[in-house]
């Protein structure tokens, strides 16, 4: 029982911590599968979180906050799209630029509007996403094993968490079972072929970038409206990069993305829970090593020591119609 309790606690915080990662990594999946690399996930998430915190406070409504986050995030990804698709600029450079612009402007605007030292005002219950109790959660709690798992692990999360996990099969379905998905993948692998088929490469890529904006916005809204009660300075704290790592770790496939995010979320949860506690077999692990582990794993994977991560073939290359 004690063990079960422990497991549930860890699993629950794993799910909480992986939710923004899953959303951001799926966001990256859409744009990178369309051939537009995006290291600006971090910036878009932060911008979304800030917009969500601001609008949710003013309108006192979580849904309004979510909408604002999505709009701001889409606008930011359109900037990225304009630079990397229309202007054929360097996609990495553009992503870096967006991260900086957002990191700076959220602080400046937040300070100008609210004067609370790098945060938006704390949100009331009504302006946040509440934890949802699934039906029969309390009634089933008494059932051994399944009861607590259902009541404590599956039930009791914010709506956005369920949305994130739902988006995994939805993304899979869009990508592999719809015409849009086929074209999206094609435009990332061989844009010339897509162009020959009479489909606009530019418009396809823009659509991929917009999908990325939507999901990054939701990820940001989750941070400021569900995981916390408002936006704080630099609250993404590298989550965008971890999501990017998860995306590569999962080799740009939706279901593995979920597992990679759960793994990285688990590492995070574990590091928080077991700071300074000696572990069996390995002894005391420095907390810094635990924090660095997602990055180390990604480097090892990228170097081809655990399978090989092959990115979309036309990724990072602007499409030039005539040669």
């Amino acid at each position: 029982m004690d063990f079960l309790q422990l497991f549930l606690e860890l699993a629950q915080s794993t799910i909480r911590l992986s939710t923004p990662l899953i959303l951001a990594a799926l966001a990256g999946l859409f744009t990178e599968r369309a051939g537009v690399f995006d290291i600006g996930l971090e910036g878009k998430m932060l911008g979304g979180a800030f917009a969500a915190g601001t609008v949710a406070f003013i309108a006192q409504s979580a849904m309004a906050g979510l909408l604002a986050a999505v709009v701001v995030s889409i606008l930011l990804s359109l900037v990225h799209g304009y630079a990397s698709i229309t202007q054929r600029g360097n996609q990495i450079v553009s992503g870096v630029a967006i991260n900086f612009i957002v990191a700076g402007s959220t602080v400046i605007l937040g300070e100008a509007w609210f004067r609370q030292g790098g945060r938006t005002p704390a949100l009331a219950e009504a302006a946040r996403f509440q934890e949802i109790d699934l039906p029969f959660a309390e009634a089933l709690r008494g059932v051994p094993l399944i009861g607590p798992i259902y009541a404590d692990l599956i039930s009791g999360h914010a709506a956005l968490t369920y949305f994130a996990f739902l988006m995994v099969p939805v993304t899979w379905w869009i990508l592999y079972r719809t015409r849009f998905g086929l074209r999206l993948r094609a435009v990332g692998e061989n844009p010339g072929a897509v162009d020959t088929a009479g489909i606009s490469v530019v418009w396809m890529r823009y659509r991929g970038v917009i999908c990325c904006g939507i999901l990054c916005g939701v990820a940001g809204a989750y941070l400021s409206l569900a995981a916390n009660a408002g936006w704080t300075k630099g609250m993404t704290a590298g989550k965008g990069y971890i999501a990017l790592a998860a995306l590569i770790f999962a080799k740009w496939r939706p279901v593995p993305v979920m597992f990679a995010c759960l793994l990285f979320g688990f590492l995070d949860a574990f590091a928080i829970r077991y700071q300074g506690t000696p572990l069996p077999l390995v002894g005391k692990v420095p907390v810094q090593l635990m924090q660095a582990l997602p990055y180390i794993l990604t480097v090892i994977l990228l170097a081809g020591f655990i399978g090989k991560a092959i990115p979309p073939k036309a990724g990072g290359v602007p499409y030039v119609k005539e040669r």
Binding site: V79, G89, N90, V93, A97, I98, I101, G104
Partner: peptide, 16 residues
Amino acid sequence: DMIVIIQGLVILFAGA
């Protein structure tokens, strides 16, 4: 933080 914005804008306009 204004510097961070300018830095980002320079990277955007002089780079991308």
